[in-house]
Nucleic acid binder design. Structure first.
Lengths: 226, 226
DNA sequence: CATTTAACTTGACGTAAATCAAGTGAGCAC
DNA sequence: GTGCTCACTTGATTTACGTCAAGTTAAATG
């Protein structure tokens, strides 16, 4: 029962399975498949048949989408507890996005059929899921508005502040290398480099080594204009 | 019972209430409030307490979000059958967006409490809602990727092609005036004007009068690069 | 019809940031 | 150690597009 025990632990991590009674959690855990993905491998790729919901048990995964002109955009970074595959809820669809593991990663899978059964049995799961999706829609709307109306400098500063508050320290290593950070912010690595230097010389941050950053003036960062 | 009859008709229009049995539809209709909003009036504004889901029965509404620097972004255009207010599913939140009627508009309202009851009673509604939200997330992701990786010209050309296919003709009036179209595409009215002229002179489209456009070469438009 | 107003067009100009190109430094194999 | 690779930096150049400003057209109002 070691495997089952792991599955239960994994399930309990996930926001959409919070506040369920033990029986339901056990039921969910029995539907879950574990999978390990090594750094650099893909969890799924655009064009794959989308038939399962993916839940992050441990690790870091970047989800990207390529547009017609072949340019790649980092849509989101999956961390422990995040899930992806909303589209799994539709009838047959293909994945529009690709997901590459940035670190060794542990994920849980639930198939569409199992998930739909689960929802029919447990309205609580449905409501949790609706909440999660509603929040995600609101986030995406806010992000869409921000990318079209703010400069790279503002977005980068904002990213630093957010990351700092997620990590609960203002002295941290960037979780993404600059290439990926550039994709995420919709800019180029060169520009990231320049902006960070600019923040350094104006005293807003200090840089040490490859990826280490210390925020000196959070309020100042939030007022950056370029 | 005229009012109830209207409510049933309205409810039947809405994708999330499709494929329900008559009893459920009647139940939904009894929860719905009608509201009329005149052109130029606001359906809701940022900062309002969000406590109901809004369903478009007739008309056109633009939903906008303002970012920190005060610039406005058109998030989406609500048409008949669309709904907005996913955030209604959370506990107390404020609206992040504002919604202004572009034409005289008829909407249906359902309060959070009523909607949550509905979901608990009818798993079918929950699943429809999850589908709708999942689709919306996928759309937003695609849109976010497009805005960060493509030029204004590409986005405009793409918008024209999409609009044409929605309206099922390639000879139509733009549903938005250029000011709003600019907000939607994340650009300025001047640039829209210039790009359209460019498309005209290269024969891709013909313009007639204020807002009338005819697409001459859809394939050409889809290959626009600037 | 005349007058006002607002949407739109067109031109001139400035600039943020992409792109191109040439380093620099760090990690890794041998 | 020496050499290789890859992430990153820094500089030079180009460009798409925003902004400001001055028309022009067309709808709205009296």
């Amino acid at each position: 029962m070691q495997e089952n025990h792991d599955a239960i632990a994994c399930v309990k991590l996930v926001p959409i399975f919070q506040q369920l009674d033990d029986d339901t959690i056990t039921a969910v855990a029995s539907l879950v498949q574990d999978r390990h993905v090594k750094k650099g491998e893909f969890v799924f790729m655009a064009g794959d048949h989308a038939d399962s919901l993916i839940i992050m048990a441990h690790g870091q995964v970047k989800v990207t989408q390529s547009s017609a002109n072949g340019r790649e955009q980092l849509i989101r970074l999956l961390q422990t507890g995040d899930f992806d595959g909303e589209s799994v809820l539709f009838e047959d669809t293909e994945r529009q996005t690709s997901a590459e593991a940035l670190t060794d990663t542990q994920i849980c899978l639930i198939t569409r059929d199992d998930f739909q059964k689960l929802i029919k049995q447990s309205p609580a799961v449905a409501i949790n899921m609706l909440n999660a999706l509603g929040k995600r829609v609101a986030d995406l709307e806010a992000q869409a508005a921000a990318t079209l109306t703010t400069s790279v400098g503002e977005r980068l500063a904002n990213y630093l502040v957010e990351t700092s508050s997620e990590l609960e320290t203002n002295d941290f290593d960037l979780p993404l290398q600059k290439k990926d950070l550039a994709l995420y912010l919709g800019t180029s690595p060169e520009t990231i480099s320049r902006k960070l230097k600019q923040f350094s010389t104006s005293g807003l941050i200090s840089q040490r080594g490859r990826n280490h950053i210390k925020l000196n003036d959070v309020d100042g960062l939030m007022m950056v204009e370029n």
